[in-house]
């Protein structure tokens, strides 16, 4: 899978970054209508996702590869539940439009704005995060930078080619009478699962 940076964890070491900013990140992200779940281990994430699938009556999930998700064992669980799960590039291209949920990994969060950074060079990471009505993003809870400034310290070291996105809550508009309405062209729910326990190999 194409990435702007092969090792975000390493580059993040060059700037201020750590779990001490998580609380502020969480507050700001929630302010932007993101849903935040902080879990100790990847396995706990599995329960959150399976519950969500039950509540929303989801049938089809598209997902891009990420190590936290693999460690959570959620894919096996989904298959056991009889959910259609697509993870290959071609399958994602075919099914993202009709999927109920998209799952991806994101690289780090920004406390100042409640944003997460997605390395979106691979087209499938954009498809799963834009086309289905729900986007779930895995992120290590320790990877939070304090501000936009630090995020760009990192970008300026790695961004030579590709596509990077900051995602801050779900898609929204206020174009009619300035009434805030969630879910226009992108997802109406944006859910971050922040995992405390480190998993070797980073998110990628």
């Amino acid at each position: 899978m194409k990435k702007v940076c092969e090792n975000w964890e390493k580059v993040l070491l060059t700037t201020t970054c750590g779990p001490e900013y998580f609380e502020e990140f969480e507050a700001k992200a929630k302010q932007a209508s993101a849903e935040i779940f902080r879990v100790k281990t990847p396995v706990e994430a599995k329960e959150i996702i399976t519950n969500l699938i039950k509540f929303t009556n989801a049938k089809k999930v598209v997902s891009v590869d990420n190590v936290l998700q693999q460690a959570s064992g959620v894919n096996e669980e989904l298959q056991a539940m009889g959910i259609e799960l697509y993870t290959s590039q071609n399958d994602i291209a075919e099914h993202a439009e009709t999927a109920d949920i998209g799952i991806s990994g994101v690289e780090f969060g920004i406390a100042e704005t409640g944003s997460v950074c997605q390395d979106a060079y691979a087209i499938e990471s954009r498809l799963v995060s834009m086309l289905p009505p729900v986007h779930i993003a895995f992120m290590p809870s320790s990877r939070i930078v304090p501000g936009v400034e630090q995020a760009f310290d990192v970008f300026s070291q790695v961004f030579q080619r590709g596509y990077l996105s900051l995602i801050t809550g779900p898609s929204r508009t206020a174009d009619i009478e300035r009434v805030l309405t969630i879910g226009v062209h992108g997802p109406s729910r944006f859910i971050v699962i922040a995992v405390d326990e480190p998993v070797s190999g980073g998110v990628a």
Binding site: N90, T113, S115, E124, G162, Y163, S165, T168, G186
Partner: peptide
């Protein structure tokens, strides 16, 4: 807003999926 929902940066051509004869490439 502190940040808009999406802030995207594009550097050079990026991949796109195209369907030809029923096949995605």
């Amino acid at each position: 807003q502190l940040m808009t929902s999406y802030m995207s940066m594009i550097c050079g051509p990026t991949p796109v999926m195209v369907k030809k004869d029923g096949q995605w490439t």
